[in-house]
Design a protein around this nucleic acid. Structure first.
Lengths: 102, 102
DNA sequence: TTCTCTGTTCAACTTATTTCAAACAATCAC
DNA sequence: GTGATTGTTTGAAATAAGTTGAACAGAGAA
């Protein structure tokens, strides 16, 4: 089902460090070095999670000299929000009947 | 920050089997035995994930004879949806300024 | 060019999750 | 009562995911 694969995409929010990065980027654009300072994690770790976020389309990058700035993509967050809202509506209109046991 | 802890709650959707259970419950109430049949997973595995979903308040139970029926709690899904929508709005109104590097 | 700085990729290690069989509890039918 | 059914809990094994230092690549400065 389409909804199944959609919900699965929410696993992007499964890691605490990743959600911290997302929270920080919600306020301002930051480059990798900032995120290293702000989170206390090592550079390869931050880079690893940024790649996951990039692949998911949740963040965009912009190279500025030697630095790489990251920013959130609000539209993608809306999309994820919509997945859950649709699921909620589906659950509300779901049959109140109980599937009989064999 | 409050938002950080909120986003972290989305890790409930991290596991594929858990999302499959959620998807199945979005259409109708089901008991453990149905979920075992429908997913192909063993009973303890299903029971384990149902406990996680119960603890998160995402599903409710009702005992019917020997069976235990599970159903989704739409309000909780709406809540999760709202977390992401709020984050999206915050990202939209975030400063376009780039944090300068040291 | 050479050096420095920023960031990514790689491979090994570590840690957290998931899964399973077995044991257990509770309910219904007989 | 006994036996069968449904479901949870437990503890160990298997699997998946995150973290790390070291190596690597590219851009800017001297």
């Amino acid at each position: 089902m389409l909804i199944s694969t959609s919900i699965d995409r929410l696993s992007i929010f499964a890691d605490p460090l990743r959600t911290e990065i997302i929270r920080l980027l919600a306020d301002e654009q930051l480059c990798t070095c900032h995120l290293v300072d702000m989170t206390g994690a090592r550079q390869p770790t931050i880079s690893h999670h940024l790649k996951i976020l990039r692949d998911a389309g949740l963040v965009e990058t912009e190279a500025v000299g030697r630095n790489t700035y990251y920013r959130l993509v609000p539209e993608r967050l809306e999309e994820y929000s919509g997945i859950l809202l649709a699921l909620s509506r589906r659950a509300k209109s779901a049959s109140k009947e109980r599937h009989p046991c064999a």
